[in-house]
């Protein structure tokens, strides 16, 4: 009789446990959020001109739950816009240690500046970010946190498939 009661208790307990586990997994899965801002100085080496063509780049990467946004804003040295790349992405995979992220780009908008020269880096990035496709033909962008210190608000990131290392500021969100 006692065993009978135990058996009756086991099934609801299992269901409750599974429910708690699913809630916990859902919570940890959606809790990933990160925002990075990476400032770069760009130099376009040109065999014809002796002086490099120079621009600046601000790359903002924002990951929140299952969604991500990657914005590249290019500027001329006088501060005027030299074009931008705005990408929407979904988070495909995050490693257990939160150091490897795999984003699938769902939407990409490349805007070139009509006036003046387009930075070579913008053309390159617009090309390379469409290279690595997943099975749904969505381009993938991987990044790995090589080094970071939350107390000092910095992270060094390695982006793939371009194999680009970039130092970024960790933005508190």
């Amino acid at each position: 009789m006692r065993n009978q009661y135990l058996k009756l208790l086991i099934i609801p307990m299992l269901v409750l446990l599974c429910g708690l586990l699913v809630t916990y997994l859902f919570w940890i899965r959606t809790d990933h959020s990160m925002m990075l801002s990476c400032h770069s100085e760009l130099f376009d080496r040109n065999a014809i001109q002796a002086i490099d063509s120079r621009h600046t780049l601000v790359a903002d990467i924002s990951v929140k739950g299952s969604k991500a946004q990657v914005n590249y804003r290019y500027f001329n040295l006088d501060g005027s816009s030299a074009g931008n790349i705005i990408m929407q992405a979904k988070v495909d995979d995050i490693s257990d240690d939160n150091r490897h992220f795999r984003l699938l780009i769902t939407d990409k908008d490349v805007r070139l500046n009509d006036e003046g020269s387009t930075p070579a880096h913008l053309k390159y990035l617009a090309y390379v970010n469409g290279l690595s496709m997943n099975e749904d033909n969505l381009p993938a962008l991987n990044f790995e946190v090589l080094d970071y210190d939350k107390s000092k608000d910095y992270a060094v990131i390695l982006f793939q498939p371009s194999n680009t290392v970039c130092g970024c500021q960790l933005i508190k969100v």
Partner: peptide
């Protein structure tokens, strides 16, 4: 990417040459 500290704060520069 150059990383270091200046006056106790993180200091960073990214140079990209095409």
């Amino acid at each position: 990417t150059l990383r270091g500290e200046k006056n106790g704060l993180s200091y960073m520069r990214n140079l990209k040459v095409s």
